[in-house]
Simulated scan of single mutants.
Amino acid sequence: MNIVFMGTPSFAIPSLREILKNFEVKAVITQPDKPAGRGQKLTPPPVKQFAIEKGLECFQPKSKDEIYEILKSLKPDCVVVVAYGRILTKDILKIPKFGCINLHASLLPKYRGASPIQRALLAGDKLTGNSVMLMDEGMDTGPVLSRQVVKIDQEDDLQRLSEKLSEMGARLLVETLKLWFRGDIKPKPQKGEPTYAPPVSKEELRICWKAQAQSVINRIKAFYPEAYCLTAKGERLKILKAKLAEGKGEEGEIINKRRLIVACGEGSVEVLELINQKGKKISGEEFLRGYRERVLL
C-alpha cells in the first residue's frame, strides 16, 4: 500500500515509525515551521525532523488548497493522519482509495477535538484510550474501525500518558490498517453522547488555590509542565509534581514550615517539584528554604 502520512507533534512519531516497518510511505505532510523558545527561532515540527532523518519527502502546506494539490499529485492509496492539526475538507478525503484513517487519543465520541489527553487528566478520569477512525468532514466524527482502552495510572501526567497512548496507538493503528486493506474490518458509527476537548487556553494553565485539592493536582498533571502559580511578588512558578496532603488553612497559604504544603479551597496539596523563577528545577523543600512569604497566589 502506498501511504501518505500526515502528522505534526512528537505524539505522531511512533505511528510513523511503525507504519514505515510495514508499508511504503510515499511522503509526509506536516505543519509549517513555527517560532519557538526565548529567541523565537523558526523551528521544524518533530515529525518533519523525523521524516528528514528517514529520508522521506516532506511537504508543509499552508492552506487546504495546497494539501489538495499535493495529495492529488501523489495519488496515495491511503492517507494516515495522527495529530496533524487541521480538519481535512471533503475533496481531500475523497482522493485516497482507502480513505483517510485517523488515530485519535480518546474513546470516541468522548473528547473530540484538540486536547483529549489533557481533558481526560483534568477530569480525573480513570480510563482513556485510542480510537482509529475513517475520517469524514466533521471534527473527529467519523465511524470507528478499532479502539483500545488504556488505564490512567496515578503517576500519569500529560507527558507520561501521551507517551503511553502514542506507543500503544501506533501498534493499534498498524494492526487496523492491515485489516482495513484486506477488507476484514468494517467502520462502525460512534455511539453515545459526544464530549469535546477544545484547545488549551493560557488562562487554564494557572492554578487556582480556591479549587478542591484533587482538582489542583489534576490541573498540574493535565498541563505538565506548564501549570503555574505566582509568588507573593508576582513571580511565576511552574508546578511539576504534587500530592494530596493533610492540613487546613486559607487558600494559597503555606501551612508547613519544612514542606511546601499549600491549603486549597478544600484540602491541601504538597508541591514536590517545581521550576522556580530562575528556570531551575527544584524540590518543594528547596524552594521553601529561600522563600520568606507564607502564601502563593
Score class of each variant (00 low, 15 high):
124 G>E: 04
126 K>N: 15
58 C>T: 14
122 L>Y: 13
109 P>K: 00
81 V>F: 02
96 P>S: 00
41 K>V: 14
116 P>N: 11
30 T>C: 01
81 V>L: 09
84 Y>A: 06
76 P>M: 07
68 Y>P: 04
113 G>A: 15
50 F>G: 01
49 Q>N: 13
24 E>N: 11
82 V>I: 12
104 H>D: 15
57 E>F: 11
70 I>K: 09
98 F>L: 06
111 Y>C: 02
71 L>S: 13
36 A>N: 03
58 C>R: 10
91 D>C: 07
16 L>D: 04
17 R>A: 15
10 S>V: 14
73 S>T: 08
115 S>W: 08
27 A>W: 01
26 K>I: 06
114 A>Y: 08
32 P>V: 00
8 T>L: 05
75 K>A: 12
101 I>E: 01
27 A>R: 01
11 F>Q: 04
52 I>C: 01
69 E>H: 10
45 P>G: 09
29 I>E: 00
37 G>F: 03
55 G>S: 05
115 S>N: 13
118 Q>R: 11
9 P>M: 02
101 I>D: 01
55 G>Y: 07
44 P>R: 04
82 V>K: 10
125 D>G: 03
28 V>H: 05
8 T>S: 12
65 D>L: 05
55 G>P: 04
103 L>T: 13
64 K>W: 05
26 K>N: 00
70 I>T: 09
82 V>T: 07
45 P>K: 12
11 F>D: 02
31 Q>W: 02
115 S>C: 12
70 I>E: 08
42 L>F: 04
33 D>V: 02
64 K>T: 12
125 D>V: 02
17 R>P: 04
116 P>A: 11
10 S>A: 15
25 V>T: 01
50 F>V: 00
